[in-house]
Design a protein around this nucleic acid. Structure first.
Length: 703
DNA sequence: CATAGCCGCCTTTTT
DNA sequence: GGCGGCTATG
């Protein structure tokens, strides 16, 4: 413990009572928590009585390992909020009013449910878009407003319709024994609130609660945390208000700002020294974040010697931007002997990884896109998992409908509707109705036979759920017909087969590592998988990820691309209208910048293809906030570039033109903006299009 | 009932 | 530009 600074020691050894560690980026926050776990155990606390909450599974995994190397033996509970809630809900399922074998519904499942809910309410999904409804419901759940109480207080038309949808959505989830991500938190919060005995029991179990990234907790998580320490107040929260980037998910920065009033006797420790980045990088980050008004002032005190400059580059388009990064990466690996694994490229939106990947592939630079959830979204994986979900939770109609005819076994829409109707009539679950298919009169003998085979297959699988899960998965894959189907499906099928093999390997790993392997536990765990969880820091390749995924990580060299108005800040963020959202976007950039240890390369492109359309961009205002010098340079470059390219085009009104896909048309208007000139064309097909001359590829027709 | 092909929708960030 | 859902056809 000698290597700790004075303030770190203060945080580590303040054992009893509430403690808030306000820690800037790179201040050794995680180190403090791990040492603190060790210190608690040293002082006689049983590991069993310690609960540490991290932001991602990956962070939990790393913390477990670090604690282990410090001699803090296994037994402390270290997990994310969501995983903890799953454990609690499974343990106290009856008290929470749910079944312990619940399915966890991800976004795709939620969309199916909400569509059904909107339909059930006889509303139109154009006015009540599924995405918006889910968003609204998620916000309500994070604020711990359940469907009933929202309905009771709904006054205007929209609220009351939303309330109906919310109620109906919740009904559908209940029927299917499914919980969405927000339910995990909300149900746990209500459980703790309504059952003082459960609350007391958990207070006794977890005598010390440590929460990392407290700035990104939402109201539900806040309530859970408060309840978990209500008897002893041994809470230690660490976080940095300047790194709060999950407001859109309900994170409430006020939780950390109000810590002192929530626990009046709290001890506050500030960690302001930064052990990660060079002073130049920190100065920039400091300049930037100073533009935020709603914050607690905090210094970034560098401990590293000054080195190098931060590079802000302007490029013609996203491809050139990517190529410049490749160039730099090659330079760094050859000249400075830096490993690929020490470099990362951050972008704001996942879609931006595509161009980067193409250029990386072309240049044969190994890379990994850090997107863990993607794997589990593949069709073949979802299909296979759906079979497993049914074995655990037969009420999971979404999973059941997914596989009932996958691979095709002659059970179509008509049959499904007949069974559905029967289930509704008898007030039984869909799966129960399937079991009794021979009693459904409207079904033909042939169909009844098919259904019987299907049900019988699932029932056979069910008998096998107690052993090794990997074996079961393999068996299900083969006997369900999925394996056969994929083997005969050409190259795509081969790819899918490889993915399934990867899944089976992962399951085998789980079998080995889990304390008490069970199918329920496995399914629930992978539902809570996050993007960052897939980050493999042992393989030597460049990491590509979103700025959000970069949270909590650090790299020797960091590239941040697409720092353009509309992307960062994002146009959908309402940042131009809403000051709070603008501040959050700024924090996001701040998080990205402060991941860099020595090299930081910020860039933007003058043209970017968005949804297949090449658009002229405007540099982000945040670039100006980094510091004067850089922005002056880049602005000048932009200005001169624009001057150089001023040419006349000759697309005068009346000119006949031909477009590759729109066909023949006539120019209505020409707006001379030099290189960015725009032409309005009325096409024969009836469409009037506004096109950028430079990229439209218009051919002049003579007649 | 299966399949292919087309149309129209959306498209920030994620547990 | 990508995907889900719908329709027309076999």
């Amino acid at each position: 413990m000698q290597q700790l600074t004075l303030s770190q020691r203060k945080a580590v050894f303040h054992i009893e009572g509430p403690l808030l560690v306000l820690a800037g980026p790179g201040s050794g926050k995680t180190r403090v928590i791990t040492y603190r776990i060790a210190a608690l155990i040293d002082s006689g606390i049983r590991p069993y009585n310690i609960c540490a909450i991290t932001f991602t599974n990956k962070a939990a995994e790393e913390m477990r390992q670090r604690a282990f190397t410090l001699g803090a033996c296994a037994g402390a509970h270290i997990s994310t909020f969501h995983s903890l809630c799953v454990r609690i809900l499974r343990r106290y399922a009856d008290r929470a009013g749910i079944h312990p074998n619940f399915s966890i519904y991800d976004e795709a499942d939620q969309v199916r449910c909400i569509k059904q809910a909107i339909k059930d309410c006889e509303l139109d999904s154009t006015n009540f878009s599924p995405a918006r409804m889910l968003d609204a419901i998620s916000t309500l759940k994070n604020k711990l407003i359940d469907a009933e109480s929202f309905k009771n207080n709904a006054e205007d038309f929209f609220s009351s319709k939303l309330a109906d949808i919310y109620l109906s959505y919740q009904n559908i989830l209940n029927e299917r024994n499914g919980l969405d991500f927000d339910d995990l938190l909300m149900k746990t919060a209500f459980l703790l609130q309504d059952h003082s005995d459960v609350c007391r029991e958990l207070n006794e179990r977890f005598k010390f609660l440590l929460i990392d990234e407290y700035q990104d907790t939402n109201h539900a998580q806040y309530k859970i945390a408060r309840a978990l320490v209500s008897q002893h107040n041994n809470i230690c929260a660490t976080g940095d208000p300047d790194q709060s980037i999950y407001r859109w998910r309900g994170a409430d920065i006020r939780n950390i700002l109000a810590f002192e009033s929530d626990w009046p006797n709290a001890k506050i420790v500030k960690l302001e020294e930064n052990f990660r980045s060079t002073p130049n990088i920190l100065a920039m980050a400091d300049n930037l974040i100073a533009f935020n008004r709603n914050r607690k002032e905090k210094k970034l005190v560098p401990t590293k010697p000054p080195a190098g400059d931060v590079d802000v580059g302007v490029f013609e388009d996203e491809t050139e931007e990517a190529q410049a990064i490749i160039q730099k990466i090659k330079e760094l690996t050859t000249k400075e002997d830096i490993h690929l694994r020490d470099m990362a490229v951050f972008y704001c939106v996942n879609a931006m990884s595509r161009v980067l990947e193409e250029v990386f592939v072309k240049n044969r630079i190994p890379y990994q896109v850090v997107r863990g959830v993607e794997f589990y979204r593949r069709k073949e994986i979802r299909d296979l998992l759906a079979y497993l979900k049914i074995l655990v939770n037969p009420d999971d109609e979404i999973a059941l409908l997914r596989i009932i005819n996958t691979p095709a076994r002659g059970i179509g829409k008509v049959t499904i509707n007949k069974v559905r109707a029967y289930a509704a009539e008898k007030k039984i679950h869909f799966y129960e109705a399937l079991k009794k298919a021979e009693q459904i009169e409207s079904l033909s003998m042939a169909v009844k036979a098919k259904l019987a085979v299907f049900v019988n297959m699932l029932e056979q699988f069910k008998k096998d759920t107690s052993g090794q899960i990997a074996q079961l998965v393999e068996r299900v894959f083969n006997e369900s017909g999925l394996a056969k189907y994929l083997s005969s499906a050409g190259p795509d099928g081969q790819n899918a087969l490889e993915n399934v093999n990867e899944l089976i390997n992962a399951v085998a790993d789980y079998d080995k590592q889990a304390e008490q392997p069970s199918l329920i536990d496995y399914l629930q765990q992978i539902s809570l998988f996050s993007d960052t969880d897939a980050y493999d820091n042992s393989s030597d390749c460049v990491a590509l990820m979103t700025l959000h995924a970069a949270k909590g990580l650090e790299f020797e060299n960091v590239f941040i691309v697409g720092v353009e108005d509309g992307i960062l800040p994002h146009e959908r963020s309402n940042a131009s209208v809403n000051k709070d959202e603008m501040e959050e976007e700024r924090r996001l950039f701040f998080v990205g910048i402060t991941r860099a240890k020595t090299g930081l390369y910020i860039s933007y492109a003058r043209y970017r293809t968005v949804r297949g359309q090449m658009l002229r961009t405007i540099s982000s205002q945040f670039l100006f906030e980094l510091g004067q010098e850089i922005t002056e340079q880049t602005r000048e470059k932009e200005y001169y570039d624009d001057q150089e390219n001023h040419t006349s085009s000759g697309f005068d009104p009346g000119q006949l033109v031909r477009h590759q896909s729109f066909g023949l048309g006539r120019v209505k208007e020409y707006i001379n903006m030099g290189e960015n000139s725009v032409v309005v064309v009325q096409f024969n097909t009836g469409y009037t299009k506004t096109l950028m001359v430079r990229y439209a590829g218009l051919l002049k027709e003579d007649i």
